[in-house]
């Protein structure tokens, strides 16, 4: 606890300890009070298996979409100088501060059956996003994309631009440099952004239910299932939360050793 710079001061240690307690205590309490005996029974239910599969599927697809769209946007924000860049960066962050339900309402007004884009789209093609798994993914992407963009943009900024210059002097086109230099150097940030996006998607509830609705097998994800169980079967809700918690933990721990240990 002490080194040549002096002891770690209590005014830092005490809040750090409080922060740890605040983060860990509720999770530990959940583990302690969960009806473990119901776990097997719960895991066997069709509803849980459907919701879990759908959660993993939509979170994973949404993370992929976030990467495909977020990496280029982060690159543009970090590397291209254009008027309105600061404004665009601010706009990208806005979904972070929106209450999830508001995010859902915003999505409805754009892509809903009566939305600005949703209505003409439905009229022209008969397709609409609400009540579909694609709608769930769109909601997840909407709330997760800011994490990916912010995280990758930070990584691109700290992965110094001089390396791009070095690549250019060696004859690399911008796209070649992007693939062979920019992305590899930003990899820790990209991985962190994707993990954040995946975790955010897995826990997403408000925007999903407001925009895509709730139907088992199509749009019902774990958080919705848990929320609905709280009213009728509080014990079951705890067990379901436990399953979601363990699932997220397993993925985060598996990823941590591989991706999150940044040099």
């Amino acid at each position: 606890m002490s080194d040549s710079l002096g002891r770690a001061p209590a005014r830092l240690l005490v809040p750090a300890g409080l922060a740890t307690l605040l983060l860990v205590l509720p999770l530990v309490s959940l583990l302690l009070t969960a009806p473990w005996s119901m776990l097997g029974e719960q895991l066997g239910t069709e509803a849980l298996r459907q919701a879990m599969w759908l959660s993993v599927l939509t979170a994973t697809v949404a993370t992929g979409v976030c990467l495909l769209l977020g990496l280029p946007l982060a690159w543009v924000l970090a590397r291209v100088d254009f008027p309105g860049r600061r404004l665009l960066r601010t706009l990208v962050i806005v979904p972070l501060v929106l209450p999830p339900v508001v995010a859902g309402v915003a999505l409805v007004s754009a892509f809903g059956r009566t939305g600005i884009i949703g209505e003409p789209l439905r009229a022209a093609t008969g397709l609409s996003l609400p009540y579909t798994t694609a709608g769930v993914i769109v909601a997840h992407v909407f709330v997760s994309l800011p994490f990916v963009v912010i995280s990758i943009e930070g990584a691109l900024r700290s992965a110094h631009q001089e390396y791009d210059a070095a690549a250019a002097t060696l004859g690399a086109s911008r796209w070649h440099a992007f693939r062979t230099v920019t992305v590899p150097l930003a990899l820790p940030g990209i991985a962190a952004g994707m993990v954040l996006a995946w975790a955010r998607s897995l826990g997403e509830f408000g925007a999903t239910i407001t925009f895509a609705g709730n139907y088992p097998g199509t749009t019902q994800t774990m958080p919705t299932l848990i929320y609905l169980s709280i009213n009728s079967h509080p014990e079951a809700a705890k067990t379901l939360s436990l399953v979601l918690l363990l699932l997220s933990l397993a993925v985060l721990v598996a990823l941590r050793d591989r991706w999150l240990v940044t040099s």
Binding site: T210, Q220, Y227
Partner: peptide, 16 residues
């Protein structure tokens, strides 16, 4: 197409 979490959500879906 959807089983809403409460009656207000059902109403909101209809009203909108």
């Amino acid at each position: 197409v959807s089983r809403e979490v409460d009656v207000k959500s059902v109403l909101a879906k209809i009203a909108s």
